[in-house]
């Protein structure tokens, strides 16, 4: 007889535990991410904003509050705008050909091929190579006196190009390195999306006599639109944050006497992230570097927003 109330209360207790489990445990599961995000993402973001309002250098313990002074100096700083221009230029030069190439590669691999897996895996190989190795090797390829690219160009009568010296040439060299690393990766993402496109559409199109290129343009691209938007945004954000390539390129093509962080003596390939690095970690002016990183954040948001609007205009679905 005593067992009945006990069972009820146990059942009730289990009910409470069950609701607790249902309500609370999802938060527990996502908590690790958010805790880490707060510690290493949100907190630095806010603290950087705080630092940017101060005259804050590593070498002094006093941090005077200066309001928005750092920002106004920055907006008048030609080197900051130069870095912004370089970032956008390298961003366009690397991202646009890269994504076009990636779609084309994805389309090629979306057919039945021999050694399909081998081809698909090899696409990813450049991406798993260390960025240092890539830049060091490419810097040698782009070398002025003994570089392989100049050697090949010399067959066609071109003079030796000082790749690192020119603004355009250095941007091309850096974009090549970025494309080398990321084209395959993006091609695989496109390929995954392409595989979800129903085969019948292609069969029908083939019967209708549509060429391969027309199929790519009229079927594939509209059908993978969400993926294209995703890849465009992610690549844009990545391109805005380029730092390792120009830093190492500067170090391995010379200008070491001039400090690799300036991106060449004329700052011809200093990107925004490199500018922040130069201010923060070679001049130790954290206040100024923090202000620069906040403006850089705004630039990233704006550019990513524009690209989102642009890529949304790719027609979706089949009409």
């Amino acid at each position: 007889m005593t067992s009945l109330p006990l069972a009820v209360s146990r059942r009730r207790r289990r009910g409470v535990r069950h609701t607790l489990d249902m309500r609370v445990s999802p938060y527990a599961y996502v908590a690790p991410f958010f805790l880490l995000f707060c510690a290493f993402g949100l907190f630095p973001l806010i603290y950087t904003a705080w630092v940017s309002l101060h005259e804050w250098t590593l070498l002094s313990d006093e941090h005077a509050f200066v309001g928005l002074d750092n920002f106004s100096t920055l907006l008048a700083d030609g080197y900051f705008w130069n870095a912004t221009f370089n970032t956008l230029s390298i961003g366009v030069l690397s991202t646009v050909p890269q994504l076009l190439l990636a779609i084309w590669l994805g389309h090629l691999l979306n057919r039945r091929l021999r050694l399909q897996t081998l081809f698909r895996i090899s696409l990813l190989l450049p991406n798993v190579t260390s960025v240092v190795a890539v830049v060091v090797i490419f810097s040698q390829l782009f070398g002025r006196d003994f570089g392989m690219i100049n050697w090949v160009l010399s067959w066609f009568g071109a003079g030796s190009i000082d790749w690192a010296a020119g603004t355009a040439t250095s941007h091309i060299a850096l974009s090549t390195m970025i494309m080398w690393r990321w084209t395959g990766y993006n091609a695989l993402i496109f390929l995954a999306a392409m595989q979800a496109v129903p085969r019948e559409l292609y069969e029908a199109a083939t019967i209708d006599g549509a060429s391969n290129f027309t199929q790519l343009r009229k079927i594939t691209i509209p059908m993978i639109r969400p993926t294209i938007i995703f890849v465009v945004i992610v690549s844009t954000i990545g391109a805005m944050q380029i730092i390792a390539e120009p830093l190492l390129f500067g170090a391995s093509t010379g200008g070491a006497g001039g400090g690799a962080a300036s991106g060449g003596p004329d700052r011809q390939f200093q990107t925004l992230a490199l500018f922040v690095y130069e201010q923060g970690f070679t001049k130790f002016d954290f206040g100024y570097a923090s202000a620069a990183s906040w403006l850089m954040f705004l630039v990233v948001v704006v550019v990513a927003g524009i690209n989102y609007l642009l890529s949304r205009r790719v027609k979706g679905g089949l009409t």
């Binding site: 040698q140 070398g143 002025r144 006196d145 003994f146 391995s252 010379g254 200008g255 070491a256 006497g257």
Partner: peptide, 18 residues
């Protein structure tokens, strides 16, 4: 020779007698 001191091309320059 436009070889910035202590850069890798500068090192090569020594070896090649640039």
């Amino acid at each position: 020779a436009k070889l910035a001191a202590f850069s890798p091309p500068w090192n090569t320059g020594f070896a090649k007698g640039s």
